[in-house]
Write a protein that binds this DNA or RNA. Structure first.
Lengths: 71, 71
DNA sequence: ATATATAGTGCATTAAAACGCACTATATAT
DNA sequence: ATATATAGTGCGTTTTAATGCACTATATAT
Protein backbone atom coordinates (compact mmCIF):
# COMPACT_ATOMS: atom_id res chain seq x y z
CA UNK A 1 0.00 0.00 0.00
CA UNK A 2 1.54 3.24 -1.14
CA UNK A 3 1.86 6.18 1.13
CA UNK A 4 -0.67 8.34 -0.74
CA UNK A 5 -3.14 5.47 -0.78
CA UNK A 6 -2.72 5.05 2.94
CA UNK A 7 -3.42 8.72 3.49
CA UNK A 8 -6.48 8.60 1.26
CA UNK A 9 -7.75 5.56 3.08
CA UNK A 10 -7.55 7.28 6.42
CA UNK A 11 -9.01 10.51 5.17
CA UNK A 12 -11.87 8.69 3.45
CA UNK A 13 -12.60 6.69 6.56
CA UNK A 14 -12.63 9.79 8.73
CA UNK A 15 -14.92 11.63 6.37
CA UNK A 16 -17.21 8.65 5.98
CA UNK A 17 -17.63 8.75 9.75
CA UNK A 18 -18.23 12.48 9.56
CA UNK A 19 -15.43 13.19 11.96
CA UNK A 20 -13.35 16.36 11.77
CA UNK A 21 -9.58 16.39 12.10
CA UNK A 22 -10.04 18.09 15.43
CA UNK A 23 -12.32 15.39 16.79
CA UNK A 24 -10.17 12.59 15.46
CA UNK A 25 -7.16 14.19 17.09
CA UNK A 26 -9.01 14.18 20.40
CA UNK A 27 -10.40 10.68 20.01
CA UNK A 28 -7.12 9.16 18.95
CA UNK A 29 -4.77 11.03 21.20
CA UNK A 30 -2.74 12.19 18.22
CA UNK A 31 -1.91 15.87 18.16
CA UNK A 32 -3.99 17.96 15.78
CA UNK A 33 -0.87 19.34 14.14
CA UNK A 34 0.42 15.80 13.57
CA UNK A 35 -2.85 14.68 12.03
CA UNK A 36 -2.97 17.71 9.76
CA UNK A 37 0.55 17.06 8.58
CA UNK A 38 -0.21 13.43 7.95
CA UNK A 39 -3.39 14.04 5.98
CA UNK A 40 -1.79 16.76 3.92
CA UNK A 41 0.90 14.33 2.85
CA UNK A 42 3.75 15.77 4.82
CA UNK A 43 5.72 13.87 7.36
CA UNK A 44 6.47 10.30 8.08
CA UNK A 45 4.27 9.02 10.92
CA UNK A 46 5.49 6.55 13.48
CA UNK A 47 3.85 3.20 14.01
CA UNK A 48 2.39 4.52 17.24
CA UNK A 49 0.71 7.41 15.47
CA UNK A 50 -0.78 5.13 12.83
CA UNK A 51 -1.89 2.73 15.50
CA UNK A 52 -3.64 5.44 17.50
CA UNK A 53 -5.48 6.61 14.40
CA UNK A 54 -6.40 3.05 13.57
CA UNK A 55 -7.87 2.48 17.00
CA UNK A 56 -10.02 5.55 16.75
CA UNK A 57 -11.17 4.79 13.22
CA UNK A 58 -11.74 1.07 13.62
CA UNK A 59 -8.91 0.37 11.27
CA UNK A 60 -6.03 -1.99 11.50
CA UNK A 61 -2.48 -2.03 10.29
CA UNK A 62 -1.17 -5.28 8.89
CA UNK A 63 2.20 -6.25 7.53
CA UNK A 64 2.20 -9.38 5.42
CA UNK A 65 4.09 -11.11 2.67
CA UNK A 66 3.10 -9.62 -0.64
CA UNK A 67 0.85 -11.79 -2.73
CA UNK A 68 2.58 -12.32 -6.06
CA UNK A 69 -0.15 -14.66 -7.28
CA UNK A 70 -2.86 -12.10 -7.76
CA UNK A 71 -2.28 -9.31 -10.17
CA UNK B 1 -1.99 -6.45 14.19
CA UNK B 2 -0.27 -5.89 17.48
CA UNK B 3 3.18 -4.50 17.72
CA UNK B 4 4.75 -7.73 18.97
CA UNK B 5 3.04 -9.69 16.23
CA UNK B 6 4.37 -7.30 13.66
CA UNK B 7 7.86 -7.72 14.99
CA UNK B 8 7.55 -11.49 14.99
CA UNK B 9 6.25 -11.43 11.44
CA UNK B 10 9.23 -9.47 10.21
CA UNK B 11 11.71 -11.53 12.17
CA UNK B 12 10.16 -14.78 10.97
CA UNK B 13 10.22 -13.60 7.37
CA UNK B 14 13.83 -12.55 7.62
CA UNK B 15 14.85 -15.85 9.16
CA UNK B 16 12.82 -17.84 6.67
CA UNK B 17 14.84 -16.12 3.96
CA UNK B 18 18.02 -16.89 5.86
CA UNK B 19 18.99 -13.26 5.97
CA UNK B 20 20.96 -11.77 8.84
CA UNK B 21 20.11 -8.44 10.43
CA UNK B 22 23.25 -7.06 8.91
CA UNK B 23 22.31 -8.10 5.38
CA UNK B 24 18.73 -6.92 5.76
CA UNK B 25 20.00 -3.59 6.98
CA UNK B 26 22.12 -3.31 3.84
CA UNK B 27 19.41 -4.53 1.50
CA UNK B 28 16.73 -2.31 2.93
CA UNK B 29 18.73 0.80 3.57
CA UNK B 30 17.69 0.82 7.21
CA UNK B 31 20.50 1.31 9.69
CA UNK B 32 21.62 -1.81 11.48
CA UNK B 33 21.11 -0.18 14.84
CA UNK B 34 17.58 0.72 13.89
CA UNK B 35 16.78 -2.79 12.76
CA UNK B 36 18.24 -4.27 15.91
CA UNK B 37 16.15 -1.96 18.04
CA UNK B 38 13.05 -2.79 16.09
CA UNK B 39 13.47 -6.55 16.26
CA UNK B 40 14.30 -6.46 19.93
CA UNK B 41 11.03 -4.68 20.59
CA UNK B 42 12.40 -1.28 21.42
CA UNK B 43 11.52 1.82 19.53
CA UNK B 44 8.70 3.02 17.42
CA UNK B 45 9.58 2.79 13.75
CA UNK B 46 8.41 5.30 11.21
CA UNK B 47 6.32 4.35 8.23
CA UNK B 48 9.37 4.86 6.06
CA UNK B 49 11.41 2.39 8.05
CA UNK B 50 8.65 -0.22 7.88
CA UNK B 51 8.25 0.42 4.20
CA UNK B 52 11.95 -0.05 3.51
CA UNK B 53 11.95 -3.33 5.40
CA UNK B 54 8.83 -4.41 3.55
CA UNK B 55 10.42 -3.74 0.18
CA UNK B 56 13.46 -5.78 1.06
CA UNK B 57 11.44 -8.66 2.48
CA UNK B 58 8.70 -8.75 -0.13
CA UNK B 59 6.17 -7.67 2.44
CA UNK B 60 3.52 -5.04 2.33
CA UNK B 61 1.95 -2.75 4.83
CA UNK B 62 -1.80 -2.30 4.64
CA UNK B 63 -4.19 -0.19 6.65
CA UNK B 64 -7.81 -1.21 6.36
CA UNK B 65 -11.09 -1.09 8.21
CA UNK B 66 -11.14 -3.83 10.80
CA UNK B 67 -13.34 -6.77 9.95
CA UNK B 68 -15.83 -7.15 12.76
CA UNK B 69 -17.62 -9.99 11.01
CA UNK B 70 -14.96 -12.60 11.40
CA UNK B 71 -13.88 -13.50 14.86
C1' DA C 1 39.38 -23.60 24.32
C1' DT C 2 38.93 -20.52 20.98
C1' DA C 3 37.70 -18.45 16.72
C1' DT C 4 33.57 -16.92 14.13
C1' DA C 5 29.02 -15.38 13.19
C1' DT C 6 25.09 -13.31 14.76
C1' DA C 7 22.12 -10.75 17.90
C1' DG C 8 21.57 -7.32 21.54
C1' DT C 9 23.04 -2.98 24.33
C1' DG C 10 25.22 1.58 26.12
C1' DC C 11 26.40 5.92 24.75
C1' DA C 12 26.45 9.83 21.92
C1' DT C 13 24.99 12.75 17.81
C1' DT C 14 21.90 14.32 14.21
C1' DA C 15 17.72 14.60 11.99
C1' DA C 16 13.13 14.60 12.23
C1' DA C 17 8.47 13.39 14.44
C1' DA C 18 5.19 15.22 17.60
C1' DC C 19 3.28 19.03 19.25
C1' DG C 20 1.09 23.81 20.35
C1' DC C 21 -0.05 28.34 18.91
C1' DA C 22 -1.38 31.63 15.92
C1' DC C 23 -2.39 32.48 11.43
C1' DT C 24 -4.33 31.88 6.52
C1' DA C 25 -7.43 29.64 3.07
C1' DT C 26 -11.78 27.93 1.75
C1' DA C 27 -16.28 26.65 1.82
C1' DT C 28 -20.95 27.15 3.70
C1' DA C 29 -24.69 29.21 6.01
C1' DT C 30 -27.06 33.39 7.52
C1' DA D 1 -20.85 40.80 3.58
C1' DT D 2 -19.82 38.40 7.30
C1' DA D 3 -19.83 34.88 10.75
C1' DT D 4 -18.66 29.95 11.33
C1' DA D 5 -16.56 25.57 10.62
C1' DT D 6 -12.96 23.10 8.85
C1' DA D 7 -8.49 22.28 6.69
C1' DG D 8 -3.77 23.71 5.85
C1' DT D 9 0.75 26.31 7.04
C1' DG D 10 4.76 28.91 9.40
C1' DC D 11 7.45 29.00 13.29
C1' DG D 12 9.25 27.39 17.34
C1' DT D 13 10.23 23.78 21.18
C1' DT D 14 10.62 19.18 23.02
C1' DT D 15 10.98 14.53 22.41
C1' DT D 16 12.59 10.75 20.11
C1' DA D 17 13.67 7.96 15.84
C1' DA D 18 17.62 6.92 13.13
C1' DT D 19 22.21 6.24 13.13
C1' DG D 20 27.31 4.76 14.07
C1' DC D 21 30.69 2.84 17.02
C1' DA D 22 32.33 -0.04 20.25
C1' DC D 23 31.15 -3.41 23.28
C1' DT D 24 28.83 -7.71 25.34
C1' DA D 25 26.17 -12.12 24.95
C1' DT D 26 25.34 -16.42 22.78
C1' DA D 27 25.54 -20.05 19.86
C1' DT D 28 28.19 -22.94 16.61
C1' DA D 29 32.03 -24.88 14.38
C1' DT D 30 36.88 -26.25 14.53
Amino acid sequence: MHYETLIETVKARREMLNVTQELLADLSGVGLRTLKQFESGKGNPTLETLSKLGNALGMELTFAVKDVTAK
